[in-house]
Design a protein around this nucleic acid. Structure first.
Lengths: 233, 233
DNA sequence: AGTCGTCAACTAACATGTTAGTTGGCATCT
DNA sequence: AGATGCCAACTAACATGTTAGTTGACGACT
């Protein structure tokens, strides 16, 4: 008997309302491919696995559906949404729009302290790659982008970008860190950083655009390598 | 006795799940200032007004909260969110980022048919202003922006923009159409259209940016004129 | 054998009952 | 009179019971 134990992070370790915790737990599981694209989510199973009733999971699933992570088939089932190259392109477009606007703004109005934080972050990235600690590098990478958006002064930019980039974040899990790519990534980050240092908005935007556009080409092969995760049409 | 009859659009006239219809009804009421900012939403009242139980309204309110239209105070109350100039600036930033990216893309890759549709729309705007039909003009204005985003080929751009612009849409209701402004608006739309016709992405983006930045200055006086709708801090 | 209609089992969606946390008012104490 | 603690009423949040729509499998009919 394959007991098929899908591991959900225990909601005890999270804060906020029950529904909020269930949402975080499910979201994490989906992003980590614990529930692969196409797999069905059963409310009852989740209820007893987390030890809660159907109300909070219903709310959590509603939020996930609103964000496009799951597809709810009315009166029938709810399954983790499959990838589609179109959605990925769209998410990429949205992300580019937001992050380019952010970096343009930051390049214009940055403070010295903000520049220092970004510089420190890039140095950290370099150290982590030297140490081959790719997991931590990934986190530092995300933090770099997060810092830039935070420095616009608009806290919502970061969260909106995170929401529209969810699909990207998920599909990115399929990419193993190719040897050499982190070094390239850091170079691109440095180019962005330099433009921010020089307070050159146009250069910053161009550097960010070039950086973000590196992703799609690396994603393209996945459609055939992992066809099972992609929507058939 | 002030019976305080808040009119909600009847959910019978809408389609989709019950929760979806309740959401649309509430959303419309909030945007139309039927529920002014700061007013409290009572689940029981809404339930009996719409003739539904608490489940669908709970889901609807959860969505409204996620979009920032209402603030839920845990275990206590849920009230329509007040305006804050910071949030308005943020929404404006996000909208600018998305619409500028969209118009840039469309200027690069437009089809002749798309150009024709946009041209027709601007002509319609001109006719409507001549006829002083400002309500229809408002709709045509929104359609103009919607068309541009639609023409990117990414259907989600329009809906994401609509979501992040919700606060803008609501606060805009306080603006009476000043005499002369529609004519200016059309000039700006024409400038955008011309750049799209000429397939000049940079000009298109610049024209869009100039156009969108007309809004904030007109909104600034509202913070004192309608202080009751704004968050005190 | 293949197709179509029927039906039982399962699911999301909805309704309703229950719990627990917050709030405002009143009485009490200083 | 003013501050403080207590209590009742109200609310969102959670749990659970009920409904209705979908699906897939089985059997009857061609």
């Amino acid at each position: 008997m394959s007991e098929d134990i899908k591991m959900l992070t225990d909601i005890e370790s999270l804060s906020g309302s029950l529904a909020q915790r269930v949402y975080q737990s499910l979201r994490e599981a989906i992003l980590a491919m614990v529930y692969p694209p196409g797999s069905v989510l059963k409310k009852n199973v989740i209820c007893e696995q987390l030890g809660v009733s159907r109300s909070p999971v219903a709310e959590a699933i509603a939020r996930l559906a609103a964000e496009g992570l799951v597809d709810v088939i009315p009166q029938s089932a709810t399954r983790v949404s499959c990838f589609s190259m179109e959605e990925i392109r769209e998410a990429s477009f949205l992300r580019e729009a937001l992050e380019c606007a952010a970096v343009e703004t930051v390049a214009m109005q940055r403070s010295d302290e903000q520049l220092a934080k970004l510089t420190r972050n890039v140095r950290l990235q370099e150290m982590l790659v030297e140490d081959r600690d790719y997991a931590e590098f990934y986190k530092a990478d995300e933090e770099f982008h997060g810092l830039i958006m935070e420095f616009t002064g608009f806290p919502g930019v970061s969260s909106v970008a995170a929401t529209v980039s969810l699909q990207l974040k998920r599909v990115r899990m399929l990419l193993l860190p190719e040897e050499g790519r982190p070094a390239e990534t850091i170079k691109e980050h440095r180019a962005i950083l330099d433009a921010i240092r020089d307070q050159d908005p146009a250069a910053a935007q161009a550097a960010m655009k070039a950086h973000l556009r590196m992703l799609i080409p690396r994603l393209l092969p996945l459609e055939k390598e992992h066809a099972e995760y992609f929507r058939s049409r």
